[in-house]
Lab assay of single mutants.
Amino acid sequence: NKFNKEMRNAYWEIALLPNLNNQQKRAFIRSLYDDPSQSANLLAEAKKLNDAQA
């Protein structure tokens, strides 16, 4: 399933972002599970926040 693969990839990328705190990571990951079709958008948002907090 395409969404499962995208979701799994996004999950690990988000989990490993160095500048997000655990609460932020959990919120993004919860959103991934709520709507796997938004994986790419959620990952992009997480990366933006990660960069902003660098």
Rank of each mutant, 00 (worst) to 15 (best):
Q53D: 06
A44V: 14
Y11K: 14
N9E: 11
L43G: 02
K25L: 04
E6P: 06
L49V: 10
N50H: 02
N21H: 07
A40H: 10
L43S: 06
Y33Q: 04
A15K: 15
D51T: 07
A27N: 14
K5R: 04
N41S: 13
D51G: 11
N1C: 15
N41T: 11
A10E: 02
K2C: 07
N19W: 05
F3I: 06
K25C: 01
Y33G: 04
S39Y: 11
L43E: 02
W12P: 00
M7L: 14
A15T: 15
K5T: 10
K25F: 05
L17F: 10
R30Y: 12
F28R: 01
D51H: 08
A44L: 15
A10Y: 10
N9S: 10
D51V: 13
P18F: 04
E45F: 06
K48E: 13
N21R: 06
A54Y: 11
N50Q: 02
W12E: 09
P18D: 11
L49D: 03
Q53R: 02
A44Y: 11
Q24R: 03
Q23H: 11
E45S: 10
K5M: 03
D34F: 15
R26V: 07
N9H: 15
E13M: 13
L32T: 03
Y11C: 05
N22G: 12
L49W: 06
Q38L: 06
S37H: 06
A44R: 11
I29L: 06
A44C: 02
F3N: 13
R26M: 09
N22H: 12
I14K: 00
D35M: 11
Q53N: 09
L42N: 03
P36G: 05
F28K: 01
N9Y: 15
E6D: 08
P36Q: 06
R30W: 05
L49R: 06
Q23D: 12
A54L: 10
R26S: 09
I14H: 00
S39T: 12
K25M: 03
F3L: 12
N22M: 03
N19R: 06
N1V: 08
Y11V: 15
N4M: 05
L32Q: 01
I14D: 00
Y11F: 06
A52V: 09
K2Q: 11
S39R: 15
I29P: 00
D35F: 13
Y33V: 12
Q53S: 14
A10G: 03
N4E: 13
S37K: 12
Y33C: 03
Q53L: 13
R26G: 10
N19D: 05
L43A: 12
K2V: 09
M7G: 03
K2N: 13
L20P: 00
I14P: 00
L20Y: 00
P36C: 02
A15Y: 15
F28P: 00
N4V: 05
L32H: 01
L16Q: 15
Q23E: 15
N21T: 13
F3W: 08
Q24I: 05
D35T: 11
K25Q: 02
L42P: 01
N9W: 10
N19M: 13
W12T: 14
L20E: 00
R26I: 09
R8S: 11
E13C: 05
A27C: 02
A46T: 01
A27I: 08
D34S: 10
M7D: 02
A54N: 09
Q23Y: 13
P18A: 14
N4Y: 10
Q23A: 13
Y33I: 06
P18K: 15
E6L: 06
L43R: 09
A54I: 09
P18T: 10
Y33H: 08
L17M: 13
L43W: 03
L43Q: 05
E45H: 08
Y33K: 04
A40T: 09
K2T: 07
K47N: 11
S31C: 01
L32E: 00
I14T: 01
E45T: 05
N19L: 09
L49F: 06
A15V: 11
A54K: 03
A10P: 02
N4R: 03
R8L: 11
L49M: 13
L49S: 04
N21Q: 12
L32N: 00
A10Q: 03
E6K: 04
K48G: 08
K47L: 09
P18Y: 05
D51M: 12
A46L: 02
N4C: 03
A10N: 12
L43N: 02
D35K: 13
F3S: 05
L20V: 04
E13A: 15
L49C: 02
Q23W: 14
N4P: 07
N41I: 09
L32W: 03
Q23S: 13
A27K: 07
L42F: 10
Q23F: 06
Q23I: 14
L42Q: 04
N41M: 14
Q24P: 00
M7Y: 07
K47S: 06
L43D: 00
L20I: 10
R8K: 05
K25P: 00
R26E: 08
N41F: 09
P36V: 08
Q38Y: 08
A46C: 04
F28D: 00
K47I: 12
R30K: 09
L16G: 15
A10K: 07
P36N: 05
E13I: 13
D35G: 05
S31D: 05
Q53F: 10
P18I: 05
A40E: 09
A54F: 11
L42S: 05
N50A: 03
Y11L: 15
R26F: 08
L16M: 15
F28H: 01
K5G: 05
K25R: 10
Q23G: 13
N9V: 15
A27R: 09
K48I: 15
N9D: 14
Q53V: 11
I29Y: 13
A10I: 14
S39A: 13
D51E: 14
L32C: 01
F3E: 06
E13S: 08
A54W: 12
I29G: 03
E6Y: 04
A15S: 14
R8G: 04
A10S: 07
K47M: 06
L20C: 01
A54S: 11
N1Y: 01
Y33F: 14
L32V: 06
S39M: 15
Q53G: 07
Q53E: 08
R8D: 06
L16N: 15
R30T: 12
A52H: 12
L16I: 09
I29W: 11
L49H: 06
D34I: 14
L20G: 00
Q38S: 07
D35V: 06
D35I: 06
R8Y: 09
E45D: 14
Q38T: 07
W12Y: 14
I29K: 07
L42C: 02
N21F: 05
L17H: 06
L20Q: 00
S31V: 08
Q38R: 04
K5Y: 04
Y11T: 13
A15M: 14
K47E: 02
N50R: 01
A44K: 15
D34Y: 12
E6S: 03
Q38H: 12
N21S: 12
N22A: 13
R8H: 11
R30M: 08
A52T: 10
A10W: 06
S39W: 09
Q24S: 04
L16W: 09
D35Q: 10
A46K: 00
A44M: 11
K2I: 13
P18V: 11
Q24G: 01
Q38A: 10
S37Q: 08
K48T: 11
W12C: 03
A27H: 10
A52R: 08
A40R: 08
E6G: 02
L16R: 15
L43C: 02
Y33P: 01
Y33A: 04
M7F: 11
S39N: 07
F28W: 04
S39Q: 08
A44Q: 15
K47Y: 11
L49Q: 07
A27E: 14
A15W: 13
N41L: 13
K5I: 07
K48Y: 12
A27S: 12
L42T: 10
Y11H: 11
N1D: 15
